[in-house]
Amino acid sequence: MRYLMLQENSGLQFVALPESHMYQLVALFKRLHKEIDKLTISDRPVLPTVLAECADLELLGSELSITDGLDYVSGLERRFASLQESEYPLISLLTEIRALQAQLEFLNEEE
Rank of each mutant, 00 (worst) to 15 (best):
M1C: 04
M1A: 14
R2W: 10
Y3N: 02
Y3D: 06
L6Q: 05
L6P: 00
Q7P: 01
E8M: 12
S10V: 15
S10C: 13
S10R: 06
G11H: 07
L12S: 09
Q13R: 14
F14M: 13
P18R: 08
P18Q: 02
E19T: 10
E19V: 06
E19A: 07
E19F: 00
S20K: 12
H21S: 10
H21P: 03
M22D: 05
M22F: 05
M22H: 00
Y23V: 10
Q24G: 07
Q24K: 12
L25Q: 06
V26D: 10
L28P: 02
L28M: 07
L28C: 04
K30E: 14
L32E: 02
H33C: 11
H33E: 09
E35T: 12
D37I: 06
K38V: 03
T40V: 10
T40N: 10
I41D: 10
D43R: 09
D43Q: 12
R44V: 02
V46M: 11
T49L: 13
E53W: 08
C54L: 14
C54I: 01
D56M: 08
L57C: 06
E58N: 08
E58G: 00
L59E: 02
L59F: 02
L59M: 04
L60C: 15
L60P: 13
S62K: 05
S62V: 15
S62D: 15
S65Y: 11
T67W: 06
D68A: 11
G69C: 13
L70K: 13
Y72A: 10
Y72I: 15
V73G: 03
S74D: 01
L76I: 02
L76N: 03
F80R: 03
A81S: 08
S82F: 03
Q84G: 00
Q84R: 06
Q84C: 01
Q84Y: 05
E85I: 01
Y88L: 04
Y88N: 02
I91K: 14
I91T: 12
L93G: 07
L94S: 09
T95A: 09
T95K: 10
T95H: 13
T95D: 14
T95C: 07
T95Y: 08
A99W: 06
A99E: 05
A99P: 00
L100D: 04
L100P: 02
A102K: 06
Q103I: 06
L104G: 01
L104M: 08
E105M: 13
F106P: 01
L107R: 11
N108A: 14
N108P: 03
E110C: 12
E110H: 14
E110G: 06
